[in-house]
Design a protein around this nucleic acid. Structure first.
Lengths: 150, 150
DNA sequence: TATACGGCGCAATGTGCTTGTGTTTTGGGG
DNA sequence: CCCCAAAACACAAGCACATTGCGCCGTATA
């Protein structure tokens, strides 16, 4: 296991801010030689601390300008029903995140679609056709004052 | 504006899956020469379609193993109060996302902390000290069957 | 103190990025 | 149907960077 010293924390912070920073620049920022820095990054990747790298794409530019969070309650809480629901969410491309949560409902979804019409389609044709869904509450995102998704 | 043809869509798809793919490999996957591919990527970056690159870090490895979504309702809906609340969220490092949403509440937060104790601290010391907060509902994430955050 | 070990810096090598240039393709008008 | 202009592409050279082997040093252990 790679120990979490200050240098590693700095490396992760820099890579979270800019995943494509060159190893040279990264090494300088954290105060290491390029080789030592690279070895630490590779170790972090190998041990799974760094799970991968993603490009951040503007949703509006690719027809995903409509964003909503949805809470979903199930009428039955058996493992089989949960698995069935989760499978359905896996298949739906509009669903970007599906969290199993505590509270008055069971699931919290993040849904990205092109527009309100597409959202209605998802709401009725996708969520509406999954059995055991007992409650659906939509929270349409009007803006995100803070968004550090990575 | 860079037009969204099939090649560009493929480029974005590949970069969302692997933000550090080499330009050579990316070019081969989308069926272009390396130079043409690089020019398209640069154009996408220049026009803001690609907003940046991030490393995906395992939260458990850096002491952020406790994840929750929180819905927040305000007692007053004036612009000044909203701004004050958003400012407070900007300052709180535990808050990774803050969405302004429609519905029975005003805000949806994504909060990442180390453990339940840290969560309690955030709940009482941070959220509890912001005026105009009238309702707080926590949805603690037990698992994420699907997570395509990027 | 001797020794083993882990982490680091240095240097050389290979790989990929990057840009200028010529070529091909595409679209509109004669 | 052909021609021309503009955009997109492939090719190649130069260069920067990633990558790896090696020796050094500082620390822990017996």
């Amino acid at each position: 296991m790679s120990d979490m010293d200050t240098i590693n924390r700095n490396i992760l912070r820099e890579l979270q801010a800019n995943g494509r920073i060159s190893n040279l620049e990264l090494a300088e920022k954290v105060g290491l030689s390029p080789s030592a820095c690279l070895r630490r990054v590779q170790e972090l990747e190998r041990t799974g601390v760094i799970q991968g790298y993603r490009a951040l794409v503007d949703r509006n530019a690719i027809g995903g300008g409509f964003l909503a969070y949805i809470t979903v309650g199930l009428s039955q809480h058996t493992k089989a029903h949960q698995m069935a629901f989760e499978k359905a969410m896996q298949r739906a491309p509009e669903v970007r995140e599906c969290h199993n949560v505590t509270g008055t409902i069971e699931y919290l979804l993040r849904v990205e679609v092109a527009d309100l019409a597409a959202y209605k389609h998802f709401h009725t044709e996708v969520l509406g056709t999954v059995p055991q869904v007992s409650s659906i509450t939509s929270y349409i995102v009007m803006g995100s004052p803070k968004d550090q998704r990575a």
